[in-house]
Amino acid sequence: MPQRGNRRELLAEAAIEVLAREGGRGLTHRAIDRQAVVPEGTTKNYYPTRSALFQAAAQYLADQHTAALRELRGRVPDGLTGEHVVALYAAMLRRMATSARAQFLALFELHLEAVRNAEVSAAIGQIVRADVDTAVQLNTAVGRRMSRRGAGLLDAGMLGVALSMLSLPEDLVSEIGMDAPEVLARALLSLGSVEDEPPVEVLRDFAS
């Protein structure tokens, strides 16, 4: 948790916890005050509107996420293999449903808010760009071609799998294989690194 001296970060992290537990409708100034254990009215002093609360939570997540991935990209080890990349993405999927559960539940709420809030959308865009940059670099390092379009598809797939893992009944998660991180990671990476994109004509025929 952020140090008490950094009140804005403290409140933003509290907002994430509230979003994860109570959803977007439960994100109020009073709920954040209670979560952060600060005097009533503190959150409103820093973030006067509900829109500002969403923006603060989104930007905090974006800053934390992009910093972590920047560090990862800066220390890609020699000898990295495709299996290492699979293991990394499988670990990410496990983390989405365990230690980072609150952050991802909040992220899904923020995706909904982003439909109507340009500032929240911009913050989520920072997260996706960092994911895409990382996917391209890691796959390039192991000799696997992945375009930014493919990396975007991989990122959307990871988010969709996380949503299923967190929202579906456990028996259904098991039935449809959403509880097999290694298998899912391998499939999503393969989907994102397809060498040849289908011609536009094929896509038009498929969509018609």
Results as ranks from 00 to 15, higher is better:
A20H: 06
V132E: 00
A52D: 14
M1K: 07
E175S: 12
L112N: 05
Q64A: 15
E71I: 01
G177K: 07
S121Q: 15
L159H: 12
V173W: 00
T98E: 11
L61Q: 14
L27T: 02
I16R: 01
D131L: 10
L53S: 13
A14Q: 03
V194R: 04
A62T: 02
D78P: 07
G143V: 10
D33V: 07
V136S: 08
L166A: 00
T140K: 13
R204K: 09
V142T: 01
V132N: 07
D196V: 15
G192Y: 03
S193R: 02
I127C: 13
K44C: 01
A162M: 08
V200M: 04
T43H: 04
R30V: 06
L163S: 10
N6H: 14
R50A: 05
A12N: 05
R21G: 06
A156Y: 03
A52S: 14
V200P: 00
H84F: 10
G150I: 01
L188I: 11
S208I: 01
L163W: 13
D33R: 03
E197T: 00
A130W: 05
R50K: 08
D133H: 14
A62S: 08
S147R: 04
R95C: 14
N6W: 11
R148S: 06
S190T: 09
R94I: 09
L153R: 06
A36H: 00
T140A: 15
G152I: 02
L110C: 09
G152P: 02
L53D: 08
K44V: 05
S147T: 06
V200A: 01
Q3E: 15
N45S: 14
R8S: 09
L93F: 06
Y89A: 05
D205S: 12
A97Y: 12
M1Q: 05
G82D: 04
R204V: 10
I176K: 11
D33W: 08
V161E: 12
